[in-house]
Every structure is written in C-alpha cells, then in structure tokens.
C-alpha cells in the first residue's frame, strides 16, 4: 500500500498526524468542490499551507492522496448514515432520513452532490484500490438500508417475498442518481422526486 502512514501502521508523531490531517482535509474540500480530476497537488499544497516535502512525506502521489480522501469521506458519511439509519424500522423513519438528505443538499442548490457518489463517478476507472474501497463503502451503506427494509419486513410492512437486497440497491441508485441529476440541474427537485418515487414503490409493496 502506498499511503505509508495510515495503511502499514507506521506511527506518526502528533505533529505528523496533524499535518497529514490538514492535507487530507484540504484535498477533500477541493475534490468535493472542483472534482478529483481538476484538483492538482499544487492546489492541495496551496490550500493546506504545507510544504511540498511534507506532502510527499505522507503521500507518494495523487492516487495515494485520493485513497486517503476516499477513506476520510467514507468514514464521515458512514458515521452519519449509521446514526441516521441504524434504528429506523418504519417508512416514516425512512422518510425522515430522506428529508434530512434532501434538506442538506438544498442548502447548496444541490451543486456538489453526494461526496461519496462524486468520488465514485470520478475514480472508478482510474484506480483499482480506490474503486475497491468505494465498493466496500457502498456495500456497507446499502447494508444499512437493507437493515431498515428487513425490519420493515419483520414488522409486516413489506411482504415476505420482497427481495430486500435488490430494493436496498435500487433505493441507493435512486438516491445517487438523484444527487447527480440535482447537481447538473443546480436544483434539488429531481433528487427529491427520484427518492420519493422509489420510496412510494417500496411502500406500495405492502398493499399488493
């Protein structure tokens, strides 16, 4: 692995860890706003205020930095989603989850999309390690949604024959696709519509 510090367990001094965190934070922000492809290491140097030698001490190139950003963003989003979805067991609860995501995205007119989804659409054909890390993160996120749907099924709100994993994946795609449509339209409406349609279908399964 190439991100020396975090991956092979080489210990960082407190100061080294702080520098590394500063670089990752600046890179995360830049890649979120202007995209991975458009973000250069020089941009990251300028935004983080660290020296070139410090940056190369922690990361041997852009790929390594992108992987660190994937880990960082993934950790943040999974923490948020575990909290938001971990105990949801009703359609109403699922709608509250939807409301929070739409509301948050509306604050920026949907301009930047989902931090994890944007990374996924940009890095998947560039770097196998980043792609695998993203694949694991999305599997975990879909697992949280599947957990909710399974609890709905256990409570009788979904029929026993409903395919939970397939629905969870379909819902995730509706969410991610919705983010992407909103990003292009600079309007959160298509995202809200897409999730609402998916949720309405899931809800309709209960009264068939």
């Amino acid at each position: 692995m190439t991100t020396a510090d975090s991956r092979d367990g080489r210990r960082l001094t407190a100061r080294g860890a702080k520098t590394r965190a500063k670089i990752v934070a600046a890179a995360t922000e830049l890649m979120y706003i202007q995209g991975v492809g458009a973000t250069t290491l020089d941009d990251v140097l300028a935004a983080s205020g660290v020296s070139k030698s410090q940056l190369y001490h922690h990361f041997d190139g852009k790929d390594a930095l992108v992987r660190a950003v994937v880990d960082h963003v993934g950790e943040r989003i999974m923490e948020r989603e575990r909290e938001a979805l971990g105990h949801v067991s009703t359609i109403r609860g699922l709608r509250r989850w939807r409301d929070a995501l739409v509301q948050n995205n509306a604050l920026r007119h949907g301009a930047y999309g989902c931090a994890l989804g944007s990374l996924a659409s940009e890095v998947s054909d560039h770097d196998a390690l980043a792609r695998q890390a993203l694949s694991q993160l999305f599997t975990e996120w879909q697992g949280l949604l599947a957990g909710v749907l399974r609890r709905l099924q256990d409570g009788g709100a979904l029929p026993p024959e409903a395919s939970i994993d397939q629905l969870a994946t379909g819902l995730m795609a509706a969410l991610q696709g919705g983010y992407m449509l909103a990003q292009t339209a600079r309007d959160v409406t298509p995202m809200a519509t897409s999730i609402d349609m998916a949720l309405a279908y899931i809800e309709s399964l209960s009264d068939r």
């Binding site: 989804g117 996924a120 659409s121 998947s124 054909d125 792609r131 993203l134 694949s135 999305f138 599997t139 994946t169 379909g170 995730m172 795609a173 509706a174 969410l175 991610q176 696709g177 919705g178 983010y179 992407m180 449509l181 298509p190 995202m191 519509t193 897409s194 349609m197 998916a198």
Partner: peptide, 17 residues
C-alpha cells in the same frame, strides 16, 4: 426522473462493483 436517476446512479454503483 426515477428511470433517469436509476440509469445514472445504477451505472455508478455497477462501475465500482
């Protein structure tokens, strides 16, 4: 809108998987 979102989001998920 849902179909277009499914094509978009679904292809991203399929590419990473």
């Amino acid at each position: 809108v849902l179909i277009l979102a499914a094509l978009h989001g679904g292809s991203t998920l399929s590419q990473i998987a």
